[in-house]
Computed example of a mutant assay.
Amino acid sequence: MLSRKGLIPEDYLLTRLAEDVLQPKFKAKQGKARFVAKNGACNVAHTNIREQGRFLQDVFTTLVDLKWLHTIIIFTMSFLCSWLLFGMIWWLVAFAHGDLDQRGDDFVPCVTDIHSFSSAFLFSIEVQVTIGFGGRMITEECVSAIIILIVQNIVGLVINAIMLGCIFMKTAQANRRAETLIFSKHAVISVRNNKLCFMIRIGDLRKSMIISATVRMQVVRRTTTEEGEVVPLDQIDIHMDNPVGTNGVFLVSPLIISHVIDKDSPLYELSAPDLLHEDIEVIVVLEGVVETTGITTQARTSYVSEEILWGQRFVPTVSEEDGMYAVDYSKFGNTIKVPTPCCSAKQLDEVGGIAQFKLKEGVTLRASVRRRRGTMAVRRSRIESQ
């Protein structure tokens, strides 16, 4: 029975809070590479790409994908190169017009107070960053100088727009929001509603919600087609049984996402002993729209066969305290053992389902108990006769 102040059964309260203490320690198999890492990074290296020019056709995305150090270097060099280029142009204009020579008071230069390349470079900086110190200015003497002034202003605005937009996109990337979307360290397989289910737990640490959140699962395994073609990374979609009954999830508190292992599931023929030797990887993808920014975010993780616990289920994390629901994230990944058949879902269907399996197990158990009782009675009679 559930108490009024707590939604957690009392037998769960005896479990420890540390997830790593509860779970057995597994070592990854040697030679088995993950397709998706636990943090969501894809373990794929792109090599022998001959058409490198395709990246330059989408310069903005390429700049956003670069590391921060490379972005800052490009940001600095773009401004320095533009200042030096137009500084050289202003110096050439002044040299062609004769502004560098000493003239009388009636001489009107193209740009005032330009006497060397250093002064032309300083004037280029003042024009592009719209800083006017009052010493150097353009006059009406040269039409070419006016045209260069317009061109430099346009170039400066374009560089500012591209680089500031690139920095904004790097700071507001969707993967930053995915850092607070968490997955359970292990997946579990147990009986739920008289069906064998594959389950994981997801949660959101922020109070701002993920709108229209959806969860997708795929099984990545090595398969062979009927024609003998070997597919090293065959991605098979598996159907999700979301707790809210629709394609979207209301991720205001941690949810257990389950997959019913039926005849259409790629895990249909998988049993507990097979899980120890099967090289499979289950990829979980959580997508949604960030409520505060409106940017679509995606969080990913994966579970290999060593991280799938057979015959366990998750401990509840939600309790009612003082008229509101509280979530204890220290129990987020905790599991307990539950009675679960070690056979596959296919074998369960062959014997008539989980209900018939429990019935047969109960009959076998009662028969064994009766045999034990009969043996004990025979032993007692022999002792009494002696």
Rank of each mutant, 00 (worst) to 15 (best):
Ala120Lys: 04
Ala120Trp: 00
Phe121Trp: 10
Phe121Leu: 15
Phe121Val: 02
Phe123Leu: 03
Phe123Arg: 06
Phe123Lys: 01
Ser124His: 01
Ser124Pro: 05
Ser124Trp: 02
Ser124Ile: 01
Ile125Gln: 14
Ile125Trp: 05
Glu126Gln: 15
Glu126Asp: 14
Glu126Trp: 01
Val127Tyr: 00
Gln128Tyr: 05
Val129Asn: 05
Thr130Trp: 13
Thr130Cys: 10
Thr130Arg: 14
Thr130Ala: 13
Thr130His: 13
Ile131Gly: 06
Ile131Cys: 11
Ile131Tyr: 15
Gly132Met: 10
Gly132Arg: 14
Phe133Leu: 15
Phe133Gln: 12
Gly134Cys: 07
Gly134Lys: 00
Gly134Asp: 04
Gly134Phe: 09
Gly135Leu: 12
Arg136Gln: 15
Met137Trp: 10
Met137Thr: 02
Met137Val: 08
Ile138Trp: 04
Ile138Pro: 00
Thr139Asn: 00
Thr139Pro: 07
Thr139Trp: 06
Thr139Arg: 02
Glu140Tyr: 06
Glu140Trp: 05
Glu140Cys: 02
Glu141Val: 09
Val143Arg: 12
Val143Phe: 09
Val143Ala: 14
Val143Tyr: 06
Val143Gln: 10
Ser144Cys: 13
Ser144Leu: 15
Ser144Asn: 06
Ala145Gly: 12
Ala145Trp: 01
Ile146Pro: 00
Ile147Pro: 04
Ile147Gln: 02
Ile148Asp: 04
Ile148Phe: 14
Leu149Ala: 14
Ile150Glu: 03
Ile150Leu: 11
Asn153Met: 11
Asn153His: 10
Asn153Gln: 13
Asn153Thr: 10
Ile154Phe: 12
Val155Trp: 11
Val155Arg: 03
Val158Gly: 08
Val158Met: 11
Ile159Trp: 06
Ile159Leu: 15
Ile159Ser: 01
Ile159Val: 13
Ala161Ser: 12
Ile162Lys: 03
Ile162Asp: 03
Ile162Thr: 14
Met163Leu: 15
Met163His: 07
Met163Val: 09
Gly165Glu: 00
Gly165Arg: 04
Cys166Ile: 14
Ile167Ser: 05
Phe168Asp: 07
Phe168Ser: 08
Met169Cys: 07
Met169Leu: 11
Lys170His: 04
Lys170Trp: 01
Lys170Cys: 01
Lys170Gln: 07
Thr171Lys: 05
Ala172Lys: 10
Asn175Glu: 12
Asn175Trp: 14
Arg177Trp: 15
Arg177Pro: 00
Arg177Ile: 12
Ala178Lys: 08
Ala178Tyr: 01
Ala178Ile: 04
Ala178Arg: 03
Glu179Thr: 08
Glu179Pro: 02
Glu179Arg: 11
Thr180Pro: 00
Thr180Glu: 07
Thr180Ile: 07
Thr180His: 11
